[in-house]
Write a protein that binds this DNA or RNA. Structure first.
Lengths: 223, 223
DNA sequence: TAGATTGTTAATCGATTAACAATC
DNA sequence: TAGATTGTTAATCGATTAACAATC
């Protein structure tokens, strides 16, 4: 198989492979085998080959994968050929940390705008960006290509999501611990920090080994 | 079936059900049907019943589930009967936001200690906690019941993980964008903020509707 | 009893993995 | 040619979901 629909599980691992490839490129490695890539990404070698086969045939039998070529291919597939603007709504502790997160820029994302509803915060600057009033976020705002990040209290999260969608946003990362609903064509992912701790709490108090890793598709130590 | 091994996918949804049950309890609801719970948790009703059946038979046919009873059951199963200490290593933007995250305390987690390697930071206070030297984190530190949070740069993450494990930590939440390995008996979960944006970038640039939600087990809008 | 809703079964779907033919 | 490694097949496993008998 080659360029058909890429499974969700595979999409979730492509950024991990990309990270590993960037490291390999920086140390001057020209090629990498599925076995090496698997070791570095913390997954099974068969899984790596299966995942990459969904993108096409970019390896060479007997040799491996060209690091630079594969890096470019995965980048394009993920839509990282050009930098993407990120709009952050809610500038509490987490929102401010995200606004200044170095990793975003390193991975091709640029903080383009900040919004909050607190009149005390609106107009002030955070890391060089003036905080705008959430009331100004709506159909008139052109944000078609941006990714929206919700870092508000849960009670207003749905309202914020609606505003982002009205502004044309088609991808939302929600940190508010609540279920929000968006139209089918909008991509949504949720990150709930307390939920992560609660899941860990479950595996920690069990006697058996913590298969929390399995849930994330991460392999156990093979050293 | 009743009290056998709980599937990983189910464990990942229990905190969501718990959150919904807490809301229902606060509005005075005494019982809830799988249909209602499903709607509020953003999942399928059959999935709710299947998930809850792994805990035991806590519902009443024709009636539904007792909100308070179910809340208590899920809490105990997740090991949330008592508060758990959290140790945060790395106090950059993200680490500090986590140290002051109100949601942690609300969900039964207490920040117990902070560690960093920066001599400028060691000894200073962050939200009432003195930052300790990471060099002092090791076998002598008794952290058996704590959950370790890694919010350091990726290069030192493995070293930090090893120190946490040596100190007795059996559950780790890793925010550093790198693969770390831990002994089989230690539960590990990874949260990579840039990775989330990269996944969203993939679904955003596709023409078809964003099934990023599917990947998280979250349902589409049914309004 | 009639209506409602659980708990479980079974079908289906997607993800993982070992194995190996293809081929560099 | 011999050795290495991909790409694919097929078996297996786990998760999802509809359907419905059990039962309040």
């Amino acid at each position: 198989m080659s360029t058909r629909r890429i499974p969700d599980a595979t999409v979730g691992r492509l950024p991990v492979y990309l990270r590993v490839l960037l490291e390999l490129a920086s140390t001057g490695e020209a090629t990498v085998s599925s076995e090496q890539l698997a070791e570095l990404a913390g997954v099974n070698a068969a899984k790596v080959r299966k995942d990459l086969s969904h993108l096409g045939s970019y390896g060479t039998r007997g040799v491996g994968y060209d690091v630079e070529y594969l890096r470019f291919e995965i980048s394009s597939r993920l839509g990282l050929a050009h930098e993407s603007p990120v709009v952050i709504v809610g500038l509490g502790n987490l929102g401010r940390a995200l606004a200044n997160h170095a990793g975003f820029r390193e991975r091709g994302f640029i903080v383009a705008a900040l919004y909050d509803s607190d009149v005390e915060k609106v107009g002030t600057e955070v890391y060089g960006h003036v905080i705008r009033d959430i009331a100004d976020l709506g159909p008139a705002t052109q944000l078609d290509i941006a990714i929206g990040v919700i870092a508000t209290p849960p009670v207003v999260a749905q309202n914020v999501a609606d505003r982002l969608v009205a502004a044309g946003v088609r991808a939302i990362l929600n940190f508010a611990p609540t279920v929000i609903s968006v139209p089918e064509e909008v991509a949504l992912r949720n990150v709930d920090l307390s939920l992560e701790l609660q899941i860990l709490s479950f595996y920690q108090q069990r006697e058996e080994p913590g298969s929390a890793e399995v849930a994330l598709g991460v392999e156990h130590d093979r050293r």
